[in-house]
Amino acid sequence: MPLYDCMLLLKPHVTKEALMDLVARVGKHAHRRNGVLTDIKSFGTVQLGYGIKKLDGRYYQGQLMQMTMMVTPNFNKELHYLNKEDRLLRWLLVKHRDVKFGLDLMSEDDGKGELGMFSRSSLFGDEDIDKDDDDEEYEVEEEDSKTQ
C-alpha cells in the first residue's frame, strides 16, 4: 500500500475535541479499509495567503493538521464525505512518491548517475586549490597592455 498525507485545514474557532473527532473519523475510515495511520501532526493556527469564503464568512486563518497513512489507492474517492463537513475549510490527499535521498540514491546506481560525475575529493573539499591559475590570467592581461 502506498503512503499518503491527508492535509486538513479547519476553521480557526473549531475546538480541540471537534478537531480530534474529525481526525479520528478519518483514521477509523482508513482502518476499516485495512489502512494504517502512521503519523499525525498539528501545525496549529496558520495565516492563510488569501481569505477562504464559506457560508458563515471569510476566513484568513485556519488550523492545519497532517495525517500520514498507508491506504489503498482508491481511498481518495472514499473521502467525499469530507466535502460536506462544516468544520473544514479545505482538505487534500497527497501520495508519497518513491523518493530516495543521500546514500540510498548513490547505492541504487553505484554512483554512475549525476552524483557519479564528481570525485570524492571535489565533493568533500579534499583537493588542493591551484592559486597559479588566477596569476596566469593577470599575466596575460599585463602582456597585452605592454604590447599596445
Rank of each mutant, 00 (worst) to 15 (best):
L123R: 15
L37F: 04
R97H: 14
G62I: 11
L89Y: 11
H29M: 09
G35D: 01
L48D: 10
L103Y: 00
L79Q: 09
K41T: 06
E85Y: 00
S107K: 15
F101T: 06
A30K: 11
E137P: 00
A30L: 06
D126S: 09
H13D: 15
M70S: 13
H13V: 12
K41Q: 11
H31Q: 12
D39G: 09
N76W: 00
V46R: 14
C6V: 07
I40Q: 05
E143V: 06
L55K: 15
G51L: 05
W91P: 05
D56V: 04
I52L: 01
A24E: 05
G116T: 11
M65L: 14
C6K: 03
P12M: 02
D135N: 07
Y138V: 06
M1C: 01
L88Q: 10
N74W: 03
L19S: 15
L115A: 05
R97W: 07
L115H: 08
V140S: 04
L89G: 05
K16T: 13
E141T: 12
T72K: 15
M20W: 01
I52W: 00
N83L: 13
S119Q: 07
D86C: 03
M106Y: 14
D126C: 02
T45V: 15
F75T: 06
K28D: 14
M67H: 07
S145H: 00
G113S: 01
D132A: 10
L123N: 10
L37D: 03
S121P: 01
Y50P: 01
K28S: 07
R32I: 04
H13C: 09
F101R: 15
A24T: 02
E139P: 03
L93P: 03
T147K: 08
P2L: 05
E127M: 13
K77V: 07
K16P: 10
K11M: 12
M106S: 04
R32V: 03
D133P: 00
L88I: 10
L115R: 07
G49L: 13
K131M: 13
T147W: 00
D130H: 08
L10S: 06
G62Q: 10
L93G: 09
M117E: 08
M67R: 04
K16D: 11
R120L: 15
E78H: 14
G125T: 08
K95T: 12
G27V: 05
D126Q: 09
D39P: 05
K54F: 03
F75N: 04
L92D: 04
I52N: 02
L79G: 13
M1F: 00
E108C: 03
F118A: 01
Y59M: 08
D130C: 12
L19D: 11
K100Y: 11
L9F: 08
Y50E: 12
V36R: 13
D110E: 09
V140R: 03
M70H: 10
E139Y: 10
T38H: 02
L115T: 09
K54P: 04
E137D: 07
H29G: 07
D5L: 11
Y81P: 04
K84F: 03
R32C: 06
G57C: 10
M7W: 11
C6F: 05
M117G: 09
K112P: 08
V94S: 07
G125V: 14
R33P: 07
T38P: 02
M20H: 12
K28F: 06
S42D: 15
D128H: 14
S121T: 13
M70K: 13
